[in-house]
């Protein structure tokens, strides 16, 4: 018998600290497998965010650096400019990237930095206790929007992929989801493609990954996947937003 699936060597043996059913674990695996399949194990450098994935540096078996909240694209810029032969990726959530770090991500994309950003969008602030994020859906109940997000008060959620795609420096932007196995496979292919474009020096690459937060959504892991599919995907359509390489 041949091994058809085993834990990639790009992940360490440290068990993930995430809540049961949290799709961060899947996203970590996909990033790790993408690096491994590209043969870049010895050349990858990751930037960990602030948020639930703050301990990402414990899980990836490559050089990792922790950035100040939202500043991962700035740190990635520095690393990539000093080491242009390295594969540099930042892994950020929606609180980190779409809120406190909006300036950094927009300008990194505008400058066309040759890095890959993995943007985990779960429509809520996970680590801090389920507050409303810029990506929370209209009507979504969170601890800071107990009657649901109101358009007239908070506006509508930001579609980061579409926003980034308007910038000339961004060469590849795709939105993927982790709600079922076929989409998980697509997500890995997108991450791989983004990393490939980065190494070819094409420009800034951005993959938005729709994810779940069962704990703060108040749902079971299985219900959370269903909620993602039924509520998030209509507002955040999947697919390639931009591919100009």
């Amino acid at each position: 018998m041949a091994v058809v699936f085993e834990k990639t060597k790009m992940l360490t043996d440290v068990p993930f600290h995430y809540c049961p059913g949290c799709t961060h674990g899947i996203a970590h695996r996909l990033v790790a497998e993408a690096v491994e399949e590209l043969g870049m194990q010895d050349k990858a450098i990751g930037i960990a965010p602030v948020g639930c994935a703050v301990f990402a540096y414990n899980y990836f078996n490559c050089d990792m650096m922790e950035a100040a909240h939202g500043r991962a694209p700035a740190v990635a810029t520095g690393i990539k400019r000093v080491h242009p032969d390295k594969l540099v990726f930042s892994y950020q959530g929606d609180g980190d990237l779409a809120s406190i770090g909006t300036a950094e991500i927009v300008h990194a994309a505008a400058r066309g930095e040759k890095v890959t950003t993995i943007f985990i969008n779960n429509a809520i602030y996970g680590m801090t206790g389920g507050q409303m994020a810029p990506t929370s859906l209209e009507g979504q109940v969170t601890t800071t929007s107990p009657y649901g997000r109101k358009r007239e008060h908070c506006g509508l959620p930001i579609r980061m992929s579409e926003l980034i795609a308007t910038l000339d420096g961004a060469c590849y932007v795709e939105r993927v989801s982790l709600h079922d196995v076929p989409n998980i496979i697509k997500a890995k292919n997108a991450i791989k493609k983004a990393m490939k474009y980065q190494m070819e020096g094409k420009g800034f690459t951005f993959i938005e990954v729709l994810s779940t937060c069962p704990t703060n959504w108040g749902k079971t892991p299985v219900e959370a996947l269903k909620w993602l599919k039924e509520n998030m995907i209509p507002y955040y359509p999947l697919g390639v937003v931009k591919e100009e390489v």
Binding site: M1, A2, V3, V4, F5, E6, K7, L11, P15, F16, Y18, G21, C22, T23, H24, G25, I26, R29, D180, V181, I184, I185
Partner: peptide, 12 residues
Amino acid sequence: RMCPDVVFTVER
């Protein structure tokens, strides 16, 4: 592929 905690090893 679905497991968030990579608990499975599959052989065939």
